[in-house]
Design a protein around this nucleic acid. Structure first.
Length: 234
DNA sequence: AGGATTTGACCCTC
DNA sequence: GAGGGTCAAATCCT
C-alpha cells in the first residue's frame, strides 16, 4: 500500500490535483478565536495526503507522522461514514505553532486515511523533543516567504533527489517498490506515495520523522525549481 | 494535578 | 440555511 499525495493549493489559482479524487472540502479557511473576530478569513495552505491504515497497531488511530498532535475536535461529515478528526500541534502555545491537520477515513476505502495538513510546524526541529529554541535558524529552514513556495509544493511532486536525501537521512524502512521508470509526475507520484507511506509507518525505524518532513520540504523546493525552469523553457 | 480527549454549541463561509 | 471548523466545559487518563 502506498499513500497518495494530493495537492491542493489555495490562493494561487493554480490548483493541482492528483489523479485520485480530492476531498470534497471546499477549502474554507480556518482561524481561531471565536469571540466575534473574523474566522476563516485567512486561507492557509493545505495539503492532503492519503495514508494506509497501519497494519500494526490500532487501525482506528490516526497515522503518526512524527509530530505530536492534540485533538481539538471531531465532526461527522456529511455523506461520509467516518468522522473527521481535528488536530493541532501540541506545542501550539509553547511555540506558537500554527500547524494543524484533519484526519478522516475514506468512505470508499476505510483502510486509508486522508490527512490534510494546514500550515507548517514552527516547532519544526523540536516536535518530539522541544528545545528552548522555538524557531529554527535560517540555515536549517527556508525563510518564511519561501515556505509558501515549499508549501504549495507539498502537493505537487518529489524528485528522485528527495529519495536520495531520504536514504541519506537514514530511512531504510522501505516496503513497496517504486515502479519506476515512469517520467515526470508519475514517477514523482510514486515517490511521494512511497515517502508518505514510510513516513507514516516509520515506526519500524524509530527515526525522527520530523527529519522526513524536512526532506520533503527540501525536495519540494528542489522540484519547484525544476518546475520553474521547465516553465521557462516552454 | 495537569494534560489530553470528548462533545455540544457557536460562528463563519458558501 | 447547511455544512464545516473551532471553542471550551466536562470528562478521562496518567
Amino acid at each position: 500500500g502506498s499513500a497518495t499525495i494530493l495537492h491542493r493549493v489555495e490562493g494561487g489559482g493554480n490548483v493541482r490535483t492528483m489523479p485520485v479524487a480530492v476531498s470534497p472540502d471546499s477549502g474554507r479557511g480556518s482561524a481561531s478565536s471565536s469571540h466575534g473576530t473574523s474566522r476563516r478569513r485567512d486561507r492557509p495552505h493545505r495539503s492532503s495526503i492519503r495514508v494506509p491504515v497501519p497494519e500494526i497497531g490500532n487501525p482506528d488511530l490516526p497515522p503518526d507522522d512524527g509530530h505530536t498532535w492534540r485533538k481539538y475536535g471531531q465532526k461527522k461529515i456529511l455523506h461520509s461514514e467516518y468522522p473527521r478528526g481535528y488536530y493541532r500541534c501540541t506545542h501550539r502555545k509553547l511555540y506558537d505553532c500554527p500547524a494543524k491537520r484533519m484526519v478522516q477515513r475514506l468512505d470508499a476505502d476505510p483502510s486509508t486515511f486522508e490527512v490534510t495538513y494546514i500550515d507548517h510546524h514552527t516547532c519544526h526541529l523540536s516536535s518530539t523533543a522541544p528545545s528552548l529554541v522555538p524557531v529554527p535558524p535560517p540555515s536549517s529552514l527556508p525563510p518564511a516567504d519561501h515556505m509558501d513556495d515549499v508549501d504549495h509544493l507539498m502537493m505537487t511532486t518529489v524528485t528522485p533527489l528527495s529519495m536520495g536525501l531520504r536514504t541519506q537521512g537514514g530511512i531504510a524502512c522501505s516496503g513497496g517498490g517504486i515502479q519506476g521508470t515512469a517520467s515526470g509526475d508519475r514517477e514523482a507520484e510514486y515517490a511521494v506515495s512511497q515517502m508518505a507511506d514510510e513516513m507514516f509507518n516509520s515506526r519500524c525505524t524509530g527515526s525522527t520523522s520530523s527529519n522526513i518532513m524536512d526532506l520533503i520540504f527540501l525536495a519540494e523546493a528542489e522540484e519547484d525549481r525544476r518546475a520553474a525552469s521547465v516553465g521557462k523553457s516552454q
